[in-house]
Every structure is written in structure tokens, then in C-alpha cells.
């Protein structure tokens, strides 16, 4: 981050307060950067995990809600485990993803947000369990990358891999078992969408 940009930051407490009420307080952070040191995904991030926490503490909503970092976070929980101040950094990353979607932010990693959405849609359609072939199908339709992948040859490789799995009995084109609790599961989905 450039020096000018750092000076231009005007701190606001609102975001930190929201994180506080979500049981994800960030105000104990003393910038030891242990989270970023142990993070295996920093090579794919735009902001380091410690920068996300700092910017959240300073109320820089646009920056953290629009960042790539929360989306490529793999939830490996190394940061949360090692934080000497008990900050649930991976939990903050989850909160930022959910909040960015809820507020209609433009998502910088649509392949990842669409994967999560396709996964949950698959569980909903399956009545409570995940069908892996259905997830693969739904995600391929939703990812919007099919044509690109066809041109690059990636699609062919993916289909071949899928076939290898079918041949070995690791991918069966069938729907999951019907659950007695399907109604209960549908109610969870309905409640969470309110």
C-alpha cells in the first residue's frame, strides 16, 4: 500500500463493532503478523491476512469487502490457531464473504463464490445430502467458464478426469438417498434466506 493511501484512511469504528457483535472481535490485534507468516495462501491474495484485520479495525469496508483475500482463504485455520490474541481470523474471512454477497458487492473471485453457491444449491436440490456429480454439473453451468475451458483444452482434461473417476466407481450418476428430514432441511434453507 502506498504512503499517500495510508494517510488518506479515515478510521471508522462501525465495521469493528459489527464484527464484535458477530463474536469476531478484531480490536486486540497488535500486528505481530503471525497470521500472515503461517498462511499458505498469501501467494494468491491481494491483502495479507494481517492487513485485512488492520483495515477492518480501521473501518475500511470498501477495501476488505471487495478484497480477493477472503475468497482464496482455504479456511485451514492456521491463522486462527496461532493468533496470540485469540482473533478468529478465518472466521472474519467467512464473515466478510457472506457480508460481501449480502450487500451485493462485486465479487473479485466469482469462480469461488459460484462454487459455494452451487454446492449449497446441490444440497438443497438433493434434499439434504450432496450429490457430487450434480455439483460438478451445476458448477460447470454456473462458472461461466465453459467456452474458455473448451478452447484451452481444460474442459477435455476435466471430462477425462471425470471419466476416470466413473470408471473406478468413484463417481456415480445418481441422486442421494431421500431423507426423512428433508422438510427440516428445506426449512433450514428457507430460514437462512430470510
Amino acid at each position: 500500500m502506498s504512503l499517500e493511501k495510508q494517510i488518506a484512511i479515515s478510521p471508522a469504528g462501525e465495521l469493528a463493532a459489527k464484527l464484535n457483535s458477530a463474536q469476531l472481535p478484531v480490536d486486540a490485534c497488535y500486528q505481530c503478523k503471525k497470521c500472515s507468516s503461517g498462511c499458505p495462501l498469501t501467494f494468491a491474495m491481494d491483502l495479507l491476512p494481517d492487513q485485512v484485520i488492520r483495515l477492518a479495525l480501521l473501518g475500511q469496508e470498501e477495501q476488505v469487502l471487495g478484497a480477493v483475500t477472503p475468497w482464496v482463504c482455504s479456511s485451514c485455520e492456521t491463522c486462527t490457531t496461532r493468533c496470540p490474541n485469540g482473533i478468529d481470523i478465518a472466521g472474519v474471512m467467512d464473515w466478510l464473504k457472506e457480508e460481501a454477497l449480502r450487500r451485493g458487492y462485486s465479487i473479485p473471485q466469482v469462480q469461488i463464490s459460484r462454487f459455494h453457491q452451487s454446492f449449497l444449491e446441490t444440497v438443497r436440490l438433493g434434499g439434504g445430502r450432496l450429490s457430487e456429480p450434480l455439483l460438478l454439473g451445476l458448477y460447470s453451468l454456473r462458472s461461466g467458464k465453459t467456452l474458455e475451458k473448451l478452447k484451452s483444452g481444460e474442459l477435455k482434461d476435466e471430462l477425462l478426469l471425470g471419466w476416470e473417476l466413473v470408471r473406478r466407481g468413484r463417481l456415480k450418476p445418481k441422486l442421494p438417498k431421500k431423507l426423512k428430514g428433508a422438510g427440516e432441511i428445506a426449512a433450514f434453507f428457507a430460514k437462512s434466506e430470510r
Partner: peptide, 10 residues
């Protein structure tokens, strides 16, 4: 991961 990433209630 999908649920805890984008829908913590669910």
C-alpha cells in the same frame, strides 16, 4: 466449506 463461507446460519 460452502456453508460456513457464505451462510453461517445454515
Amino acid at each position: 466449506s460452502a456453508a460456513h463461507s457464505i451462510n453461517h446460519t445454515l
